[in-house]
């Protein structure tokens, strides 16, 4: 039996990366919500009640093919008491090092360009 790649070929030639990422995200969120509901023994009807939506609307949301709005996602987060989307924190790193002598002297050496000589281990 011949094996084809009809869908992938079309997506390669005509697909839009934004659409594919949107689909991935919708499905990932829907799947996460479904897992939470299963863990809590809740069905679509129960979830619909929590959201004050109809069951069919909830089923549509969780089908993975529906484009979830931010508002819908937040509604689900509030209803379930969990975060569905995490925004990565930007961390500022502070490096600590040992300075010999007094701080004033070392600051002067640094500003006069002697820092690397003073701290050879850190010279690049």
């Amino acid at each position: 039996m011949k094996k084809n790649n009809i869908i992938s070929n079309w997506l390669k030639e005509n697909g839009n990366i934004e659409t594919e990422m949107l689909v991935k995200r919708n499905l990932a969120i829907a799947n996460k919500v479904r897992n939470i509901l299963n863990d809590r023994n809740l069905n679509d009807g129960d979830f619909a009640e929590l959201l004050e939506k109809t069951r069919s609307e909830v089923s549509k949301w969780l089908s993975g093919s529906h484009n979830l709005t931010q508002k819908s996602i937040i509604k689900m987060e509030i209803a379930l008491g969990v975060k569905l989307i995490y925004i990565e924190q930007v961390h500022k790193y502070v490096y600590l090092g040992k300075i010999e002598g007094s701080l004033k002297e070392e600051a002067k050496k640094y500003s006069e360009g002697d820092y690397k000589k003073t701290m050879p281990a850190y010279a690049s």
Binding site: L11, N14, E20, V23, L27, R34, S65
Partner: peptide, 21 residues
């Protein structure tokens, strides 16, 4: 595009679970 991307993602990641249809 949306449908085909969905078909692909179901195929790759989740399987054709009844709840998706």
């Amino acid at each position: 595009n949306h449908i085909l991307a969905w078909v692909k993602e179901i195929g790759d990641q989740y399987g054709a679970k009844e709840r998706f249809f």
